[in-house]
Simulated assay, not measured.
Amino acid sequence: MNNKKVQAEIKHSHCVYLPDFELPANCCDCHHHIFDRRYPYSADDKRNLPNATVSEYGEFRDWLGFTRHVLVQPSSYGTDNRCLIDALQAFGPNARGEAVVTDATSDNELDVLSRAGVKGIRFNFGAGSVTTPEMLLPLAARVAERGWHVQVHANASQLWELRSLLRQVPGRLVIDHFFRLPQPQPKEHPVWKLAWDLIDSGRCWVKLSALYHQSQRDDVSDMAGMVKTFLNEATERVLWGSDWPHPNLISANKKMPDDALILSKIFHWASNDRIRHKLFVENPAQLYGFNASSSR
């Protein structure tokens, strides 16, 4: 991995396409990461990802024109949430966090995370997770008492294997990256029905993030039908996230996306101002606890 080249792409990839849209006030990016090599990666980390810092994300945020955002603990740090906590402090009241914890995490540690602005915990079954399916329900019960949610990242086949547990999660549930439904026929996968069962329960949100995970086109235009269905039929339960700085693409040495172009696609697929306001403002405010003054 050429870290200098990757670093330049992280900083400048969002400048390829000039935005042709204006986001509503208090728009929220519900999924991004911070990598800061001042905080050591876990011993079993194999990706060795470069810095993607608070200041670099600030430039990205200001370029696209949103103000609120949610930091997601990357797998590189395991359960060491210090980078997340410090980044939340640096960003201030317009930021929230999703941490990684295990069944060994104490209530005092959860209190520290809560004071920092954490509103949920993440299970990443897609890349080097320290959490296991067996931890899902016990941890979900603990954080539900705090009003937090559980977020799950897994591919469609893994989600199908987890379907019984997902249906039992107490409290609120968030599924990363549009359930990782495969192209070109996402609606033929059994997880399509599972997605709607969970959404129809009234307690599940879906992140329309990282469309490039399954898209077969640089402009993600092949995702239009699926994304429009979520936007139109699950308007109360959709979220958007940039997935900046796109760690899976970096580790796989793949081309970086044009973030502004992808966001433009989603903005226009949300066909009217009501849906856009739900997607970018109201749904994140409800889930992550933002209010009119953006104070914690």
Rank of each mutant, 00 (worst) to 15 (best):
K193G: 02
Q214V: 12
M226Y: 01
S221C: 06
V220G: 01
V220M: 09
Q214S: 13
R217K: 15
G225H: 05
C204H: 03
A210R: 12
G225C: 01
K207L: 14
D218C: 10
L211V: 07
Y212A: 11
L211S: 10
W192Q: 04
V220N: 11
S209P: 13
D200R: 03
A210C: 12
L208V: 15
V227Y: 03
D200T: 04
W205N: 00
G202T: 03
I199N: 01
V220P: 01
A224P: 00
H189T: 04
K228A: 03
W192N: 05
L194N: 06
W192T: 07
S221Y: 03
K193S: 10
P190Q: 05
D222V: 06
S201F: 01
T229D: 13
D197P: 03
L194A: 09
M226Q: 13
H213R: 12
L194G: 10
V191M: 04
K228C: 05
L211N: 11
L211C: 12
G225N: 08
D200E: 12
G225Y: 01
H189V: 04
Q216M: 14
T229A: 12
K193A: 09
M226I: 06
S215N: 09
S215I: 07
W192C: 06
L231D: 06
S209E: 13
W196N: 00
T229H: 13
W196R: 01
D222N: 06
V220Y: 07
V191P: 02
L211P: 15
E188A: 15
S201R: 10
K207Q: 15
D200Y: 04
H213L: 12
K228T: 07
S215V: 09
D218Y: 14
F230G: 06
I199W: 02
D197E: 15
K193E: 07
M226T: 09
E188T: 14
W196S: 03
G225T: 10
A195K: 12
S221V: 08
A195P: 13
K193C: 00
D222K: 07
D218H: 14
M223W: 01
D197Y: 07
W196F: 10
P190D: 06
H213F: 15
M226R: 02
V191S: 09
P190R: 06
V191Y: 05
V206C: 15
L231N: 02
D197F: 04
N232R: 09
R217P: 00
S209D: 12
L194M: 13
L208D: 06
L208R: 06
A210K: 09
I199A: 05
Q216Y: 02
E188C: 11
K207C: 11
W205I: 00
G202N: 07
K207H: 15
G225V: 04
H213K: 07
A224R: 10
L194W: 09
D219W: 10
A224F: 00
I199L: 15
S201E: 08
V220E: 09
K193H: 07
V220H: 04
